[in-house]
Design a protein around this nucleic acid. Structure first.
Lengths: 202, 202, 202, 202
DNA sequence: TAGTAATCGAGACGGTACGTCTTGTCTTGGA
DNA sequence: TCCAAGACAAGACGTACCGTCTCGATTACTA
């Protein structure tokens, strides 16, 4: 990929860009999301404030760019071919991400902000980190199962319970990922067995 | 319970209290959570700022007190005795609450804030609105089903999918509450049929 | 003197009155005039705020009542009959009062406040502490000298120089009270010698 | 002197500076010193509060900068060479300044504040407006007279009486500047006549 | 090689919420 | 009627951050 920018003028400083992203990473851990400010980011990065505003319009955007790669990495699990095993592995990764990782804390903060800031909501929708990662695990099994659930519905069934558990402040220890994976598997399979019958009334 | 206040001194003004709660209700709808400020609340209520700070330590507390009653009311559904029907009714109420009501918008904002503010997290935990309302619907059916799921696990299975769907910004229309209720019912029942067998490997 | 008050009702509490005056005395020394507040006075005195406001309308009034007696005492010097000696004694007392005593600090603060608060100005005029004390020393000598200066003019000549010196922040050490007394004496005497002559042109 | 600012960064706005100084001038006349607030100054000047605080630490500093130039101008009198005439002219200017001018009201307020605020006291000492202006009139005559009074002592003798008169709230009309100038002249001269003699006892 | 133009760091700008403080008034129960 | 306690509406305090702006100083591409 060739280096290209709007024609002439000084090119964007890669040094400044990475300094900002690192500063956000550090500050999120040190002071938390609430105390994270554009001013603080710029000062920590040793960068002018205008430079931050030039490339990101608010702290959510910086944070998103700074944590999205880590998030995707942490939510990526190798597929074994055994659905139940893969679901369990994914749920383990998901719980670890949401409840214990820095990138997960950033993600939770962004989801929180998105509840009352449409710009942040759009940002999160543009790269649906949780949805994409879950889809990779769910889609193959869903196709094989013959279930009539949409991928979206299926991922919500898989991701929803632990997501709710953690975001609503319940204890992480009481999440039984193996059991959740089992129940999810059963839902997919059950659907196949009842092709003609139970859902006829709908 | 007798009206009692710390012995001497002017008693708390009920007029001021309700003015503040009403102001918060109004302002949330008018300007949104982000633009909701303690200063703005006080001014709208025609109340001194000190008076607001005296009884609530931040906007989350005021908002919680102002919306909790509405929230509980909106999430309360009469039980018919037919689990599947009750689950559907509850999920309908839940979706309507989370996605369309003012109290639900307040609740989502508070859940968001709780992700990076432990005080708000504690506040929400102190009166677990979603958990309590779901428990009323889930517990009777769970007891009758003989399933070994804990109430907490079961409510997460019921509430999690739509909760995730809405908070992660997916379209509300694609939520099929009847289908979710069905699957949830199946999970409870399935467990009973397999008392000896499927879960033995755990 | 008989205890009298407006007819019926609870009589004024002498305990509260002295507690307030003592509190003001203490607080002036401890925190200074700027940090002296009606609230602070009431709390320090263990008295309701309304009680303070009932009897004094602002901190200047309380301070005036609390320090006027001390002030008068500190500025009262016994007359010897020798004008120069009496003037020196008075000036010594004046300098000590203005520059070093607590009552003097209170007086200076009140004079300061009087520059932009007519209520305080009226309060100070009502009991002209400096004028009265100076008059006691100046008037006898003035009468004896036969000078045509008014008492007011003469006191200003005596009190003015050290008053200006201290209130304008000059070093107290450079005040030579003996010399000031001498010059003042000379002014009184000189006037007599020139009854016919120098002032004819006026 | 070259315009220099700390190297980089946006330079100080002269527009904001003069707007603040003008606002203070106006507000002092309109609302008085007591009701003069940093908030009010900023709003009147159409300037952010931070901008005011950035360059002046309290209202006294702003007021000092805003009125010092006027004060110096009002207290500057041309010298005729005739001491008595110059003293009278100076005293007239002084009385007019202290009792009737806006800059004088500001000065009196600052002197008042200085009685209980060491920062203001230091500010006034740093540019001794009254002392400097008086010195210009006193020093030449003092040198010529051969009196052993220090300049400081002599200025206190000249300035003190009207200063005391006005700041202690006495009527301005009863100040006889011609007479005060005469007496002051006499003090200087008297000293010369008694080089050997009267002061020997000291 | 000079000119053009967008970048960079720094930091002042107008604006506004923060949470605290004091003001002077009011409303209790008790003396 | 007074008193202590303390809540009330009002509004200034000094600080923090917002997003914009204006500097001088780089750093490329373009002519």
């Amino acid at each position: 990929m060739v280096e290209e920018h709007g024609r002439s003028g000084r090119p964007r400083s890669e040094r400044a860009r990475t300094a900002v992203l690192n500063a956000v990473d550090d500050l999120l851990v040190e002071v938390g999301y609430a105390a994270l400010t554009m001013k603080g980011i710029a000062e920590r990065a040793g960068v002018g404030r205008q430079t931050v505003y030039r490339w990101w319009s608010n702290k959510a955007e910086v944070l998103y760019e700074a944590s999205a790669i880590d998030a995707r990495k942490e939510l990526s699990v190798p597929l074994s071919g055994d659905p139940a095993r893969d679901f369990t592995a994914y749920l383990d990764a998901l719980v670890k991400f949401l409840a214990h990782s820095d990138a997960g804390a950033a993600y939770r903060a962004l989801v929180g902000e998105a509840q009352h800031d449409t710009a942040v909501a759009a940002l999160l929708s543009s790269g649906d980190i949780l949805g994409e990662s879950a889809t990779k695990v769910v889609e193959p099994a869903l196709d094989a199962s013959g279930s009539d659930l949409s991928v979206e519905q299926a991922t919500a069934l898989l991701v929803g319970p632990p997501f709710f558990h953690i975001l609503s402040g319940r204890s992480v220890e009481s999440i039984d990922t193996r059991r959740l994976a089992e129940e999810f598997t059963r839902v997919l399979v059950a659907r196949r067995r009842q092709d003609r019958g139970a859902t006829a009334g709908r």
